[in-house]
């Protein structure tokens, strides 16, 4: 069996090439792979496309916004391309307004389902969200049983950076409470899935198979967060 355990975050992301598409989960400050994003920031890959709920927040913590501020990202696919209040100016907002980074604004449920579609081998799907709004303009519409839907396509990625609560050496993953958010669907959607783990990575057989949120077959690399890593 291939060893999936990497000693450092830097080794785990060393091969991320310029121009990659990556997924980064997290919601409300929970479940964000901050250690892996910090490593990608150090690694310096450029021209990246990010898929994430938002494009970084105003707090000083490492998130997708760290890569954007460093000029590593050319495009974001996300549910927020503005901050809740105009007084909150993130690196993304500043660069988006200046045309230095591109973005596709996607309703959050459509974003999640497009990721899930990629994870599930679905070619496209119809959703009622955004019908009648400017976000549906130019998209294929279809009426099914009297209700109008728009056609949406999967979002694929080269890499998913994942934050998990527990893992075994095969890569079976567990999340805790709302840390789960986008983590499972992104872990299952990307071509290469890299995970930062909060607890000691246990031998296979120690996680109850009925309590596995992401099967290890989807997971390629695991790094245990060290005591001096980013914890919150």
């Amino acid at each position: 069996m291939k060893n999936k355990i990497y000693r450092t975050f830097d080794e785990a992301v060393a091969d991320v090439p310029d121009g990659s598409v990556f997924m980064s989960p997290g919601f409300g400050g929970v479940g964000i792979p901050r250690n892996l994003l910090a490593a990608v920031n150090r690694q310096g890959a450029k021209g990246l496309t990010g898929i994430s709920n938002n494009a970084g927040t105003v707090d000083a913590k490492v998130d997708v916004g760290t890569l954007i501020a460093a000029g590593q990202v050319k495009k974001m696919c996300c549910a927020f391309t503005a901050t809740p209040h105009p007084s909150q100016v993130t690196a993304f907002v500043r660069m988006y307004n200046n045309g230095e980074v591109d973005a596709e604004l996607i309703p959050q449920g459509t974003l999640a389902e497009r990721i899930r579609a990629a994870a599930a081998g679905i070619g496209a799907f119809y959703t009622p969200a955004s019908v009648g709004t400017e976000l549906a303009e130019g998209k294929e519409h279809r009426e099914i049983d009297g209700k109008v839907y728009v056609l949406e396509y999967p979002l694929h990625a080269d890499y998913a950076f994942i934050r998990a609560w527990k893992a075994d050496t095969f890569g079976n993953l567990q999340f805790r409470l709302t840390q789960r958010n986008f983590n499972p669907i992104m872990a299952m959607a990307a071509r290469i899935t890299i995970v930062e783990v909060e607890n000691d990575i246990v031998p296979v057989g120690e996680l109850d198979p009925d309590q596995v949120h992401v099967p290890g077959v989807y997971v390629d690399r695991l790094v245990r967060i060290p005591p001096d890593g980013i914890w919150d």
């Binding site: 927020f80 901050t83 604004l105 449920g109 019908v131």
Partner: peptide, 20 residues
């Protein structure tokens, strides 16, 4: 989700919730 004079917007889950 969008105010005048600002590029972009904050949709979050509002469109999914509002439609469904």
């Amino acid at each position: 989700w969008r105010v005048p004079g600002r590029k972009g917007g904050g949709i979050g889950g509002a469109m999914d919730l509002a439609a469904c």
